[in-house]
């Protein structure tokens, strides 16, 4: 099974997002949660990096996106939305789960 990478910190404040994208292997999955969702915003430097990470599956937790006032139209292309149930499915389908705190 491939790795599920979890990012919960803003890419504008911490380097977890950058380091994760530097280390995530092709075929792994990256899920942005909590303040990590800011890494998927269109028209930003982190968003551009995420858009170019086409060898990874990229996900955003929709509850955390909505809480912060954004919707799918604000995201770069190639990113899939998941809800809490989808989060569980991803956690079951991947191993290990690596949290980039």
């Amino acid at each position: 099974m491939s790795t599920l990478h979890l990012i919960n910190k803003s890419p504008f404040e911490k380097d977890a997002f950058d380091s994760c994208l530097r280390h995530a292997l092709p075929g792994s999955a990256v899920l942005l949660i909590e303040d990590g969702i800011y890494g998927a915003l269109r028209g930003t430097a982190p968003g551009d990096c995420l858009e170019q990470a086409t060898e990874q599956q990229r996900y955003v937790l929709v509850e955390d996106l909505r809480a912060r006032g954004f919707g799918p139209e604000a995201l770069v292309t190639g990113v899939q939305l998941v809800d809490y149930d989808g989060f569980v499915d991803l956690a079951v389908a991947h191993e290990p789960v690596q949290s980039w705190l």
Partner: peptide, 23 residues
């Protein structure tokens, strides 16, 4: 400034998080 500007984003709906709406 910095990530603080995200506090100003319209249409925040943090109900699912059980937190106060910073907007």
């Amino acid at each position: 400034l910095d990530d603080g500007v995200f506090q100003l984003k319209a249409e925040q709906t943090p109900g699912a998080l059980g937190m106060k709406n910073s907007g």
